[in-house]
Each structure stands twice: as C-alpha cells, then as structure tokens.
Amino acid sequence: MIRIAIPNKGRLHDPTVSLLREAGLPVLEGGTRKLFAKTTDPEITYLFARAADIPEYVQDGAADVGVTGLDLIHETKSDVEVLLDLNFGRAGLVLAVPEEATISSANELNGMRVATEFPNITEDYFKNQGIDIEIIKVSGACEMTPHVGIADAIVDISSSGTTLVTNHLKMIDKVFSSSVQLIANKESMQKNGKIEQIRTALESVLRAKGKRYLMMNVPTASLETVKKVLPGMAGPTIMKVESDDSVLAVHAVVDAATIFATVDELKNAGARDVLVVPIERMMP
C-alpha cells in the first residue's frame, strides 16, 4: 500500500487534487475533513495533512509520497527524495523592509532583527553572507512586525508582491525560490516500484500541458511547405489517405502558445481540414 500525503487546504490543495485527477488518481470518498481518502487504485490512498507537516511525514514514513513546497522541505531540513517539480505554487521568500527605510541591501541589516516564519532558511541566507542578525520567529502576520517595532525587516513568502505593497514594505532581495514538489520516503523508494509509476504518471500530465495535437489533410504537392511550418517534437507523422492518393494526413505536436499563428501559416501553405486537439498525457 502506498500512502500519498497531500495538502488538506490552502492554495496548494486544489491544484494538487486537480493534477492527481488528470494523472488518473482522483480522490474518492474523501474530503478535507477526512484524514484519509481512497483512489481508483486499491493500492494507493491519500493522507490529508498540513503542507508544512508533509516533509516530516514523508521523512518519518507516515507517508510514502508527498506533495508540498520546496520552501517547506528546506525549512524542515527533511531527508526526503525530491522526485519531480510539479510546476505550480511558484513563490519566493523575499527580504523586505518598510518603504520609508533607507536600507537597500542585506548587509545593512547587520546586528538588526528579522522576523520570519522560516527561521532555518533565513538563518542560512544570512550566514552564507556573513551577516549577523537576530531572528524573530513568528507564526503569522509577519508583514506587520516592522510597523509595531518587533523587527527591522522580514523574510516572507511573496508570489505577486501585492501583500508587500499593501503593507508598505519594499523588497531588497530574493532569499529563496519555491514551487511544489513531489517527494518520497527514501526507504519506500527502494522497496516499492509503484512510486516510480506515480512519478511517471504526473510527469506525463505536466509534459502534455501547453501542447496541442494537430491533424490535417495536406495535398502531396504542398507537403514540403507544410513541414517547414510545423515545429513538431520529432517531426510530423505523415500517412496516406486511402480515399485520395493526392492527399496526405499529417499529424504533429506543437506548443499551444503558437497555435493561432501556426494554423494560419498551415492554411496558407495548403493544409486543410485542420483539427486542434488537447493532449491529456505524454509519456517519455
């Protein structure tokens, strides 16, 4: 039995559940109020947990696999196997000071107080630069601490910078970049090959995002021109059309971002009956 720990709430919950569903492992008979949930695979169950607790759950073997932020993995210093960047939940830990402060670099904070929910990452950041600061550990509302005299600066999560602006703070440096990762217990990895199947399934969904499958009919005389338009992953697939020897069926995988321009170029090159199809999964 494989137990996968996933965030029970917050900004990481819905994208995680959605990605797992696309990979063929939807949550069944469960919800955020339950501790466990079944999947379509009888050998795989979900464990709902706080994202901050998941690295240690996986390290200690309470879960075999987990989905959580890279920042939380580093903050807890958990000894886990990082299997795959899931490419969502991107955010950064930033060093910020009040807007009116004259401080413009980390070096100027020597001997001062820095408030954060990430004391280990913050300590490593300043230690690597040889800067001596006092860390004030907080569990929330970090952005308020400089304004009430608790700290001179903060290290906090920022994805868009809106919170900093709202609280009259300015960023002076990036401390750490994070995104959501698939992790595994190291012993479980050695014992159970199904974990690699889970990784491959999720990777196949990620590879398919941003790609589209093009199908079209192309007159034989226009084939070379059409091939120049198509930037397919391994070149287009070309097949005969049984009902018309003068026409070929051409298939290719292209970037979704280029679809609008590509389809127009293909039609100008002689392609017709162009179909654009979404791709659910792409296996390496």
Score class of each variant (00 low, 15 high):
7 P>T: 00
7 P>I: 00
12 L>W: 01
12 L>M: 12
12 L>G: 11
13 H>V: 03
14 D>R: 13
15 P>T: 09
16 T>W: 00
16 T>M: 02
16 T>S: 04
19 L>V: 05
20 L>M: 14
20 L>N: 09
21 R>W: 04
22 E>L: 06
24 G>I: 09
26 P>Q: 04
28 L>E: 13
29 E>G: 14
29 E>D: 09
29 E>K: 11
30 G>V: 01
30 G>F: 01
32 T>C: 05
33 R>F: 08
33 R>K: 06
34 K>A: 14
34 K>Q: 15
36 F>E: 11
38 K>I: 04
39 T>N: 07
41 D>Y: 07
42 P>Q: 02
43 E>A: 05
43 E>H: 10
44 I>H: 08
44 I>C: 08
46 Y>V: 01
46 Y>M: 12
46 Y>P: 00
47 L>Q: 02
48 F>C: 10
48 F>I: 13
49 A>H: 02
51 A>K: 07
51 A>H: 05
52 A>E: 12
53 D>K: 01
54 I>C: 05
55 P>F: 10
56 E>S: 03
56 E>T: 14
57 Y>G: 05
57 Y>F: 15
58 V>R: 03
58 V>T: 03
58 V>H: 03
59 Q>D: 11
60 D>H: 09
61 G>C: 00
63 A>M: 08
63 A>F: 10
63 A>W: 04
64 D>Y: 07
64 D>Q: 13
65 V>W: 02
65 V>F: 08
65 V>N: 06
66 G>F: 03
67 V>I: 15
68 T>M: 05
69 G>V: 09
71 D>Q: 09
71 D>C: 02
73 I>W: 00
75 E>T: 12
75 E>H: 12
76 T>N: 11
77 K>V: 07
79 D>L: 12
81 E>S: 13
81 E>P: 00
82 V>C: 08
82 V>Y: 01
84 L>R: 15
84 L>W: 07
84 L>A: 07
86 L>T: 03
86 L>I: 02
88 F>Q: 12
88 F>P: 11
89 G>A: 05
89 G>Y: 08
90 R>W: 09
90 R>K: 14
91 A>K: 13
92 G>P: 07
96 A>G: 02
98 P>S: 11
99 E>R: 09
100 E>V: 07
100 E>K: 14
102 T>E: 13
102 T>C: 04
103 I>V: 15
104 S>E: 14
105 S>T: 12
106 A>T: 12
106 A>N: 11
107 N>A: 14
107 N>P: 04
108 E>Y: 08
111 G>H: 06
113 R>Y: 10
113 R>E: 07
114 V>M: 02
114 V>D: 02
118 F>N: 00
119 P>D: 03
120 N>E: 13
120 N>K: 06
123 E>N: 10
123 E>P: 01
124 D>V: 01
124 D>S: 08
127 K>D: 06
128 N>E: 15
133 I>V: 15
133 I>P: 03
135 I>K: 00
135 I>V: 15
137 K>H: 15
137 K>C: 08
138 V>C: 01
138 V>L: 04
138 V>G: 03
141 A>G: 07
142 C>M: 13
144 M>Y: 13
144 M>W: 06
145 T>L: 07
145 T>C: 03
146 P>I: 08
147 H>W: 12
147 H>V: 10
147 H>C: 10
148 V>S: 03
148 V>Y: 06
149 G>P: 12
149 G>C: 10
150 I>C: 01
151 A>G: 09
